[in-house]
Nucleic acid binder design. Sequence first.
DNA 1: CTGTTAGCGCTTTCAC
DNA 2: GTGAAAGCGCTAACAG
Lengths: 337, 337
Amino acid sequence: MIKGKITIHDISKALEIDSSTVSRALNNSPRVSKKTKTKILKKAKELGYQRNSLASKLRTNRSNTIGVIVPRISRHFFAAVISGIEETAYDAGYDVIICQSLDNYEREKKLVETLLANRVDGILISISMETTNYSHFKNYIDNGFPIIYFDRPCEVDKNTNVIINDFKASFEATEHLILNGCKNIVHFSGPQSTTLYQKRCKGYKAALKKHNIPLRKEYIIESNLMENDGIENAKKVLKLPLVDAVFSANDKAAISAMQYLKTKNIKIPEDIAFVGFSNEPISAVIEPSLTTVNQQDFEMGKVATTLLFEQINNKSSINETKILEPELIIRNSSIKK
Amino acid sequence: MIKGKITIHDISKALEIDSSTVSRALNNSPRVSKKTKTKILKKAKELGYQRNSLASKLRTNRSNTIGVIVPRISRHFFAAVISGIEETAYDAGYDVIICQSLDNYEREKKLVETLLANRVDGILISISMETTNYSHFKNYIDNGFPIIYFDRPCEVDKNTNVIINDFKASFEATEHLILNGCKNIVHFSGPQSTTLYQKRCKGYKAALKKHNIPLRKEYIIESNLMENDGIENAKKVLKLPLVDAVFSANDKAAISAMQYLKTKNIKIPEDIAFVGFSNEPISAVIEPSLTTVNQQDFEMGKVATTLLFEQINNKSSINETKILEPELIIRNSSIKK
DNA sequence: CTGTTAGCGCTTTCAC
DNA sequence: GTGAAAGCGCTAACAG
C-alpha cells in the first residue's frame, strides 16, 4: 500500500470544509455550489487524492463491478466475448473482473466464491467443461443473485442463458456443402455428453434428411475435437470410400485434419471440402478455403451484459434463454464436386 | 447484491458468542479454542456465511490482490504470461485482476487508476504501444508503490523490468540461418521507435558481422509487422535477387509472408527459409518449418510475480532489470541451401 | 447549500 | 480464551 494515502478528511482539514461536502463534491453532487466544488477538486488534485473504492463499495453496498468467468482467455471466441462485455460494461460505468477457470471445476467454484466475496453486482459465466454439478450456483440462483450463462448454458433450474443457435448453424453449414454438390459428408462430432455437440450433430442429420441423403453411421466420427483428434479423424476419412466433404463440430479438428490431408497431397477443397465452427480470424489465414460459422462472439458479450444489467436493476425475469442467430462465412465458393 | 447477506454478527447472535471471536475463528486464529472454533465454523456453513472481502480489505489495508494490465489477453504470449502470474499468485494466496489496455494509452491510464482505487497491493504491466508518457506511473513509482513492467519495459527512471534478451535471441536466430547455409538473409524489422525492435535488428546485424556477411540496407525491410505487412514484405522479397532466408522480428508477418509465398509456388523451406519470433503454438501447426524463439512467457509471469511479492514485502530494491534467456525452437533442421 | 451523525462489515488492540 | 470498543474511508439520512 502506498504510505500516507490521502483521504477526504485530509482535503476536509486543508480546506476547513466538512468531509461530507467533500464527498459530495467528489461525486459531483448537484447539492454543492460550483465554487466549493472547484475548490475541492483543485485541492484533491493537488494532494493526489485517489478515492478508496473499497470503502465506497462497502458503504453503498454496490460495487459497480461485474465478474466474468471463462474457461480460457486466450481462446479467440472468449476474448471477443470479453471485448463485447467490457464495451457494454464500461459504457454503463461498470468495472469488469476477468477470470479463467481453465475448464477446472474446483477452480471455477473458488472463483465464484472470490467474486462474491468481493461483492460483484453480477456474474457472467461460461461454465467449465468439467462442471456437471451446479451446486456452487444453486444458492445464489435461489437468492436471485444476477448470473448469466453464455455459450455453455446451465440447463438446470431457472436461469438466463445466452447461446447461439447451434442446430441451425450446423444445419446450414451442412446444407451449404450439399448445395455445393457434396453428398458424402462426414461429420466430426464432439462428446455427446455436451448438449452443444448433440445439437450440432442433430443439425447435420436434419440437413441430410431434408435433402434425402441417407445417414450413414460410419460417417459420424466422434472425438474430443482436439488437434490430434483431427489428424486421427482425417486418417479415418481416408479409409472411407466416397467422402467428398466434412462438417466438423469445431475448428481445431477441422484445421489439423486439413493440414494432415494436405501432406498426403489431397487438395482442399477440390477433393475434400470442409466446413468448421469458428470465428477465429487465424482460421482464414491458415485455411482460406474453410467455410466457418460466425458465432456472434462480440455480440454475445454485449447481449449477455445487457441482460445482466437488467437483472441487476430488477427489470427482467430470471428465466429466459436468448438465442443468437449464427451466420455462415463462406470464403471460398468453389467448393463444388 | 444478495439480500440479507449473513455477517459475522448473525453468527455471533445465533451462538451468543462475540463477533470478535467469530472473526478470529473464521481467520483460524490460534487464540480461539477448538471447541468454539468448530461450533462457529459449523454455524457459518449452516447460515451460508460468506466473508465480505471489501470490509476485510478496508480494515486491514491489504487487499491480497494484484492487478495485471496487458495490451490484449487474446494474444498467446500474454495469456501464457498470465497463467504464470496466476499460478504464482494463487500459491501465495493472492487474487489476480486481469485488464486489457487494447494498446490504448487513455484506457491504460484509467485502468491503473481503477486498480489503485481498488487498493491492489501491486501491479504487473506490459505497457501499451501508444504509451510514451509515463506520468501516470510517476507518482506511484516515487511513492514506492510496487509496479513491475514485463516484456515491454519502462525505461525511464528507476523501476523493475522483466524482459527477454532480444538481442541474443535475434543473434542466435540469424546465426541459425547462417549455420544452415544461408547467406542472403532478409530482416523483417519493426518500428524503430520501439527499443524492442531496435534490439532485434541489432542482433541480426551482429550475427552477420560475426560471420563476415556484408550488411545490405535493402535487406532490412521495416514495417508494422502485421499480417498485411508480411504479404507486402514477401512481395518485396520476391523482387530482391538471391534471398535465401528471412529473419522476421515477429511471427505474424513471418507467417503471412510464408502463406503468400506458398501461393506463388515458392516452397518453404527449400527456397526461402524463415525464422520468426513466437511461442504461439499455432505457428507450428500453420508452418511446421518455422523456427521460432521461445519467449519464456510462462516463466516471465512467474518471475515478474515473484519480484512483485518481494517488493510488496519490502525485500527488494526498486531498480533491477531481470533478463530471461530465450531459446530457439528448431522444428525443421533441414533448412539448408 | 453545508454540517452532524451514524454505520457498512470487518479486524484488532486492550482488558479481563 | 473471550468480550468490549474503536475505527478503516466513505456515504447518506437528517438538520439547519
